[in-house]
Design a protein around this nucleic acid. Structure first.
Length: 266
DNA sequence: ATGGCTGGCTGTGCCAGA
């Protein structure tokens, strides 16, 4: 089973680039972030016509996540549990950043798609929101680990885990994506027993998943690695490969992120 | 570089992103 996570930066603006990418690469599951669309506005028919099941958790203008899957999507939940002032379903804040479903291929895989808050400027209320959101993610991650099942959490974490994950780490030192508290919060989740799939396959520097639109960042390869797959032990046992499809950044009207893939024996 | 693009909006400039 080939699963890709991809922050598309707006489904309307990206529809040609996104459908061309799907036609070319045929992911079994695509986990999308920043659809920037309400559920009713998401062009689900385009993907259904290509053989995908579609589940969205959208909002107007910003954020929004979606799952596309060639396999059935079961037990779909929307929103990260544990928000203060939880709504009638007991889930979430007003920001649509999280969706889960079970994908049933050769094996059942619980897939969590997330768009973790950026958190800038830091310090400040947005950074506080990021850290609180990460506490809630850690709680959900601990629950998933306790089930001892094949599960993964993937998406745009807005976390640069280590200095080697940025072309210019010093430029990010005080940024919400890289400051120590952010990396510690990410590491606490990892240390529950998760495997970061890309680092399980590639130890070196110079691998990025985001390049800013500004200042010729792509041309200078001034990137950061912030899109990740975290695998439960049962899922890590099935990991065949993990890679970043960086050339997508150089195509027509690209997102500022590129797809990250895992291939699972599932 | 405390912002050089880009996307979304009900906008005719602003906010958000990272």
């Amino acid at each position: 089973m080939k699963i890709a996570t991809f922050n598309i930066n707006g489904v309307k603006a990206r529809i040609d680039a996104l459908t061309n990418w799907i036609d070319d690469t045929q992911p079994d599951v695509a986990v999308l972030q920043e659809i920037k669309s309400v559920d009713e506005g998401f062009p689900r028919e385009i993907f259904e016509d290509k053989g995908y099941n579609v589940e969205t958790h959208g909002q107007k203008g910003f954020n929004g996540v979606a799952l596309l899957s060639k396999f059935p999507l079961e037990d779909v939940t929307r929103g990260l549990p544990g928000a203060a002032g939880a709504g009638r379903d007991g889930v979430d804040d007003e920001e649509a950043r999280y969706i889960e479903a079970t994908v049933v291929g050769d094996k059942a895989v619980r897939i969590c798609g997330l768009y973790l808050p950026n958190g800038n400027p830091a310090p400040g209320p947005k950074y506080d929101y990021k850290l609180r959101w990460m506490e809630r993610l850690q709680a959900r991650a601990a629950e998933l680990i306790s089930h001892e099942e094949v599960a993964l959490m993937c998406g745009d974490y807005n976390i640069i885990p280590q200095a080697e994950d940025a072309a210019r780490p010093d430029a990010w030192r005080d940024d919400a994506l890289f400051r120590l508290e952010s990396r510690e919060a990410f590491r606490r989740i990892l240390n529950l027993g998760y495997t970061e799939a890309f680092r399980a396959r590639e130890a070196g520097a110079g691998h990025y998943s985001f390049w800013d639109y500004q200042a010729g960042a792509w041309d200078k390869n001034d990137g950061i690695r912030i899109d990740h797959f975290l695998l439960t032990p049962q899922c890590a046992d099935l990991l065949n490969n993990c890679w970043i499809e960086s050339d997508v950044r150089g195509r027509e009207k690209p997102s500022d992120h590129v797809p990250v893939w895992v291939d699972l024996a599932a």
